[in-house]
Design a protein around this nucleic acid. Sequence first.
DNA 1: TTTT
DNA 2: TTTT
Lengths: 140, 140, 140, 140
Amino acid sequence: MNKVVLIGRLTKDPELKYTPGSGTAVTTITLAVDRRFSKDNQREADFIPVVIWGKSAESTAQYMSKGKLMSVAGRIQTRSYEAKDGGRRYVTEVVAEEVKFLEWGNKTQGQNGGFAGNDEPGYGASFDDMTPIDDGDIPF
Amino acid sequence: MNKVVLIGRLTKDPELKYTPGSGTAVTTITLAVDRRFSKDNQREADFIPVVIWGKSAESTAQYMSKGKLMSVAGRIQTRSYEAKDGGRRYVTEVVAEEVKFLEWGNKTQGQNGGFAGNDEPGYGASFDDMTPIDDGDIPF
Amino acid sequence: MNKVVLIGRLTKDPELKYTPGSGTAVTTITLAVDRRFSKDNQREADFIPVVIWGKSAESTAQYMSKGKLMSVAGRIQTRSYEAKDGGRRYVTEVVAEEVKFLEWGNKTQGQNGGFAGNDEPGYGASFDDMTPIDDGDIPF
Amino acid sequence: MNKVVLIGRLTKDPELKYTPGSGTAVTTITLAVDRRFSKDNQREADFIPVVIWGKSAESTAQYMSKGKLMSVAGRIQTRSYEAKDGGRRYVTEVVAEEVKFLEWGNKTQGQNGGFAGNDEPGYGASFDDMTPIDDGDIPF
DNA sequence: TTTT
DNA sequence: TTTT
């Protein structure tokens, strides 16, 4: 059992890539998720790396941008890679199985859109056809 | 919103520490969580670091050992620290808010126990009095 | 372990009540949660009863209204009561432990508000000081 | 978003049925899930109805029995039906998407088994090939 | 650096 | 109608 649910805001615009092998779409984003209690009273957040595969990777790149709010359901994945200094680095990230856009708007379309569906702010959308075709590694 | 649920096995015996400041108990474990689908058909797992605070940290150290099965509900936390080579390292880990022991047995008690409650194998136990008194940093 | 996360829209305006005993605030709402796959392709939803206690009950009554989007984290609770026909009825509902408002606006304030914070649509807000002071039964 | 995770014990032996239409396997169980805090200090539980479809329905019927511990990940579903007295009844239940057996043993096999895998008590097993082929209604 |  |  390995279940995660997050609601948070993109720390940057998503960047869409494709695996060298099969050309599967993949987007890696970081979600800023507000913490409920903070030591002092200043706003605090966790910055959680999220990998999105397939059609949802493309939707995220198309409809989301820096600062927008979205939810992710998925699982935690760990992997390691060799760093440039020769040392091994261990990565813990969330792999999305379901995403929902809670605010819309891509930078290239202006702050608030220019596409159908945007008239209903916060309407939300689900993309879940996301069988992680884990055929290659993340290309970055 | 930041919610995680895991069921997995300890990769090593838990090691209990106390924060230098307030002496709060803290245990860091790694859970091996089986993946549902693997590329080929060999067994695969994610190795997820989990931090447990307070009374639950002590219970985990007391009742759990390498290989035992437990569940954790909590949240994902990110932090960074300065590595010995001067570079910044980013850590993503789970902070437990609720733990449940699905198998019992501490190494020092033999494989299958030697304490009350062990007669009922797999009975389970919850420890949830785990207000993360985040008063210092993790002492390691 | 008993964990639930929902994102959905209120099917009606929330109605705030107080327990006869200790006067604890309580709101019961129904969330319409879209299903991901439907038999045919028409929109389908589950209508999930949610009980909210304490300060969050008051916040929900104040800031939410029919059609607004919110998230709830909590647990499933079952209870039974005697129906008017003498038969026993069994109720399964969600008890909120954390709520987040993903869209704002109370009916009495017009569709889009009239209170601070509304300028940032979809900004979101968390209320989690929700120790369920389960001192009486739900007064309805 | 509609996510549920439960760990609990079967209140009765599971009973396997097949839909009249396509003959899909389906099992309905009730899980007794311990509450974390109770008013007084007596043990309390929620009794949560869970519907399991497909191959997992068959596995549950085969390997689980009254009192055994299992985990379920899934979603909350609501439906209504006409009662014998003509009134409408509303049902809220969990539909399993993933099940894991935390204790083994089918009644017909004796308390502790008689099948391979049972030698390793609490080893656990996942069944997740559970595309809910929602082709008919639950046949009971 | 990994568990059954 | 409930489990350990």
